[in-house]
Design a protein around this nucleic acid. Structure first.
Length: 628
RNA sequence: GGACUCGUAGCACAGUCUGGAUAGUGCGGGCGGCUUCGAACCGCCAGGUCGAGGGAUCGAAGCCCUCCGAGCCCUCCA
């Protein structure tokens, strides 16, 4: 137990007091106190005011009196605040020992929300015709952080990346290669995904405006891709696989890994759609339109103000949303698994096996990636479509809320950054567009950050080997980018600015990483092992106790973050921890103290901080170097 | 026109789910701090009718309603 222990103790005692007073169950809060109001606060008096016909202040005083008779192990004393709050002060010798000892255990911070159930999270899912831009990065970082946090919360997490290798966007670049003479080999060794996105895709789609006959060619290419086996389909397969491989390099570089790649082409060929189609018809969830504007189509009825949604066109083909239905059902394990799985090559840098679906081949292994609960990370612009899927899945599956759309707002470009791309937005933010070539590539952002951090690190440590500097710069660059993508709420638009967003000072990853480096250096210089067998009563300084308290909040924060699918909670916690440590660092010396007991204890605290910040940063996929 | 999201300091954001004390953080601005474990840091100051109005409540940034502003979605596109 950590700080939660004192919360539980107080809650139990207060419940006993209520029992003795024969007061029926009321739901009061017992929570960490605001600064200046002790360690723990309860609103219990406000809630009793009506029933007891007394002011909250009087009730607080009464309860405070009664609390002195309770058995306390972690509470030093309580206090009735004039405002009505009942505040508690911890016995920090005992609570500190509890918290710091636990922080040294391997399972520190673990919580049990999932009860070891399986959960599927799908993220990334970028069309394989271009490189990842900064908007995609938000998706993959949110998805990756949430999956890390849920793993810590005792879910067995399967991470999926859906590859739409048979969509129009793929047809676009195939058209470019086949009809506009783009070479398959990029010029000057350009990364293949960049080449396809920056050159082939943008320049091909530009021509649609001039030449409408291209639409037909594209349609035929798309048809061939969907059917498979033709020359064009094979070519498309080669191109998309190559783009995918380049995209994965970007993801892996950012510390994002997957369990399985699902290819849309295989979902189409697996026949899953026809099974779902039958089921939808039998369950009367879709209707055939005999007249009206959707004549000849199968539609899902819109509720209230929503328009009907076409699922199957009058020519018998499935729409975009229809393709998502069997996939969603497959993720929930509602269908027999039609796929075989094989290992993707190359191996992921973290050595975790990455599987990919194949329709049917020999020597493949059977595996299953469905889950009791499914989280799909997609831009909130797709909310309406995701809502339809969610409602359908709720009807398919008996347990409600098993399919969750985790939406997030988009990343836009600041007017200044848009200008560097040659776009004048008249002082407004610019929406990114792959088709129009309005975007900032993820790889470029990483490279900019890296050269910046190499410069900063070299300035501070001219004696470091270039390889060490590069390694440090990598961790800081990845951390900075990841932190920028999750430090705010999912429903806030991120306005990306090449200068402002890549700062290394203030509320940034490098601030947090820097505090870790400070802790590491102290431990390194102390040249001794830390131990939890210390005198905990020596911690008297405000900054020491504040740091211990925050360390004890780790599991509470993980629970909050997991419950709300909100990685920002952990990001803020990391920042709070780092602030507390930096303050401790500036106000207290650790090494070479006359008081050896104190020195030993402070070293234990420093190590506890290092462990805690490493574990919480890990939930964000950020690693902290020992020197920077 | 309808749906959804947002609106808190000059700027960017926490806090809103689960109503209570003194509304927090970073950037920017002003002042101060490196002969002492690393200044990517620390300390101090200035800066707020919590978009507006109404309602329920002992009590609202938070809950309900109306309005205003911004974004985004509303293809037999994906």
């Amino acid at each position: 137990m950590t700080f939660q222990a004192i919360l539980d103790e107080i809650e139990n005692n207060l419940k006993k007091i209520l029992d003795e007073m024969s007061i029926n169950e009321i739901v009061f809060t017992v929570e960490p106190a605001k600064p200046g109001f002790g360690d723990v606060s309860s609103n219990i008096s406000f809630l009793l005011a009506k029933e007891l016909k007394k002011s909250p202040r009087e009730i607080s005083e009464l309860l405070n009196q009664k609390y002195t008779d309770c058995i306390s192990t972690l509470v030093d004393h309580s206090e009735a605040h004039p405002s009505g709050y009942l505040n508690f002060y911890a016995d920090w010798t005992k609570l500190g020992q509890l918290i710091l000892s636990e922080s040294y255990l391997p399972y520190f911070g673990d919580v049990d929300l999932g009860n070891a159930s399986t959960l599927v999270i799908e993220h990334t899912s970028v069309n394989p015709n271009k490189a990842l831009h900064i908007g995609h990065v938000r998706n993959i970082i949110v998805g990756d952080c949430v999956s890390r946090i849920l793993k810590k919360s005792n879910y067995k997490v399967n991470v999926l990346n859906y590859v739409d290798d048979s969509g129009l966007q793929v047809a676009d670049i195939v058209l470019g290669f086949k009809h506009f003479g783009f070479e398959l080999e990029p010029p000057n060794g350009k990364k293949f995904d960049h080449y396809c996105g920056d050159d082939v895709y943008v320049k091909t789609t530009e021509k649609y405006e001039e030449d409408s006959s291209l639409e037909n060619i594209r349609k035929n290419i798309l048809k061939e891709i969907e059917e498979g086996n033709s020359e064009i389909a094979k070519f498309a397969d080669v191109v998309t696989k190559r783009v995918l491989s380049a995209q994965l390099e970007t993801c892996w570089n950012l510390g994002v890994f997957y369990d399985c790649l699902n290819f849309e082409s295989q979902i189409i060929r697996s026949g899953l759609w026809s099974k779902i189609f039958e089921k939808l018809k039998n369950m009367k969830l879709i209707e055939f339109e005999k007249d009206g504007k959707n004549e000849g189509c199968w539609v899902i009825r819109g509720n209230e103000n929503d328009e009907d949604k076409v699922i199957v066109r009058s020519n018998g083909t499935a729409t975009y949303i229809a393709k998502d239905i069997p996939y969603a059902a497959w993720k929930l394990g509602l269908l027999n698994d039609p796929f075989e799985y094989q290992k993707y090559f190359p191996e992921q840098p973290n050595s975790k096996i990455l599987w990919e679906t194949v329709v049917s081949e020999n020597n493949s292994e059977k595996s299953k990636f469905s889950g009791d609960k499914v989280i799909t990370v997609i831009d909130s612009r797709q909310s309406r479509l995701q809502k339809i899927i969610t409602e359908l899945m709720d009807k398919f599956k008996s347990s409600p809320d098993s399919y969750v759309h985790l939406g997030y707002e988009s990343v836009t470009l600041s007017p200044e950054t848009a200008k560097t791309l040659g776009i004048d937005t008249d002082g407004k933010q610019a929406q990114m567009s792959g088709r129009k070539g309005v975007y900032v590539n993820a790889d470029s952002v990483y490279e900019i950050l890296k050269s910046k951090t190499i410069e900063e690190t070299t300035k501070r440590h001219p004696e470091f080997e270039p390889s060490l500097v590069a390694d440090i710069a990598h961790h800081i660059s990845v951390g900075t980018l990841r932190y920028e993508m999750i430090k705010q709420d999912l429903d806030k638009i991120i306005t990306f600015d090449l200068n402002k967003s890549l700062s290394l000072e203030g509320d940034t990853s490098s601030y947090i990483q820097y505090s870790h480096a400070r802790a590491s250096r102290i431990l390194e210089k102390s040249n001794s092992e830390t131990s939890i067998d210390i005198d905990y009563s020596v911690f008297q300084e405000k900054t020491e106790l504040e740091l211990i308290k925050l360390i004890g909040m780790f599991n509470i924060q993980v629970r909050d973050s997991a419950k709300n699918l909100s990685p920002k909670v952990i990001a803020r916690y990391c920042h709070e921890l780092a602030v507390a440590f930096n303050s401790f660092y500036e106000h207290n010396h650790v090494l070479d103290l006359d008081d050896k007991q104190l020195e030993k204890a402070r070293l234990t605290l420093v190590n506890s901080y290092k462990i805690t910040i490493e574990k919480s940063l890990d939930l964000l996929g950020i690693s902290a170097p020992d020197r920077m």
